[in-house]
């Protein structure tokens, strides 16, 4: 059973790598934001799988905080996206 959880977690992590590519490529702000949100959701899933594998309640707490905080960042991002639809700050 443990093996299944770990393999699934590994698969999801590989998924994240693909998501990272989306953040890089864009093209729009919204794509990037959605990709970042995907990051959050996938990370929660990975955490829950690891929690099951390790039978650890603490990791479930971490997943909970993750999920909640992802919502807060989403609001911060959305606010930003609404106010500056096509912002490109090049440094």
């Amino acid at each position: 059973m443990q093996m299944l959880y770990i393999s699934l977690a590994l698969f999801l992590l590989a998924n994240l790598a693909v998501g990272m590519w989306r953040v890089l490529r864009g093209p729009g702000v919204a794509d990037r934001m959605l990709a970042a949100q995907l990051f959050g959701t996938t990370a929660v899933a990975i955490l829950l799988l690891l929690a099951e594998a390790a039978k650890s309640n603490a990791l479930r707490d971490v997943a909970l905080v993750f999920a909640l905080l992802a919502a807060v960042t989403a609001v911060a991002f959305v606010k930003r996206a609404w106010s500056m639809p096509e912002a490109r700050d090049i440094d």
């Binding site: 864009g26 990037r32 934001m33 970042a36 090049i90």
Partner: peptide, 24 residues
């Protein structure tokens, strides 16, 4: 290295998420 600051911040948030996985 990314030129766009918005993108850099999005990537930084993703970095934080993965750091949390590292701590686990």
């Amino acid at each position: 290295s990314s030129e766009d600051l918005f993108r850099a911040i999005v990537l930084f948030v993703a970095f934080g998420l993965l750091m949390a996985l590292v701590w686990v």
